[in-house]
Amino acid sequence: MSVSGARANHELAPRQTGDDVLVSTSGLTKRYGRVLAVDRLEMSVHRGEVYGFLGPNGAGKTTTLKMLLGLIRPTSGTAVVAGHEPGSPRGLAQVGALVESPAFYPFLSGRDNLIAMAEYSGAPTSRVADVLELVELSTRAGDKYGGYSLGMKQRLGVAAALLKQPELLILDEPTNGLDPKGMAEMRALIRELGQGERTVLLSSHLLNEVEQICDRVGVIHRGRLIAEGAVSEIRGRGALIVRAQPEGQALELVRAMPEVGRAEIVNGALRIEADPASAAEINRELVGAGVMVSELRPVQQSLEEVFLELTSEEEG
């Protein structure tokens, strides 16, 4: 799914409206009976960025995106999308979306589905061939949508979202259900699409996906936006795993080091919060103090750990 030559430039030049914040919400709340799905959400997506909307299952991502598209009404609070009220025709004209799973007519071919969507949206039907090629579905475009594989359906969903050459592309977990190759291709496509002026709002529950694709990220947890910023900021300082003997002495030593944050023993090894760049320095100090270091490596912080950190900070 690479973007090639002239078409790439074409794709990378959406229409523009002017101001700098493309999506902003204020006190956005959705309550389903006793479930508070989205809770006083404040988020802002800037023009031209690829924004990762990160949260675990049930955090409220889809509910938020549906409110931004006018599919569901907020219980309270407001949102402005591309300068308009969510769901208004003038706003929607600049927004392409794939929410939850792709949904099309099973008895129509992929191409006919796109033609129908172009008719609804007022996009020229000549766009259909372009977007089909962009997602590499041209050869199967004449087949019935009902017979498509999950990956093909997902790609058709992205193609439909691109029909309007939208300024803002909203994609809700677009790599869901794809195999590793499909995921990699989809991510590459999104990166390409997000270059230049186009703004992409991408939801995901995968930290590394967001890290690969996004410029900025908002973290949603139980309906609340608990952090918003550059990916590196959200990540924190990172962490190191250190296997050393004697353990107790090593722990005391690292706790005394200024570059080390929290340190604890997890599964027979030290887990210390520190910039991975300071690994050599930490190693030197430990060895210098007579501690035997058998392993020292940076760890990828999992989403769960990031959440733990962010939520504990919030509560603390």
């Binding site: 099309f104 609804y120 949206s121 309007k164």
Partner: peptide
């Protein structure tokens, strides 16, 4: 049943128009 309501309502026309 197909979930296409959300697809067509995120195109352009308002609900009345659809």
């Amino acid at each position: 049943g197909w979930g296409t309501v959300k697809t067509i309502l995120t195109q352009r026309p308002g609900r009345i128009s659809v």
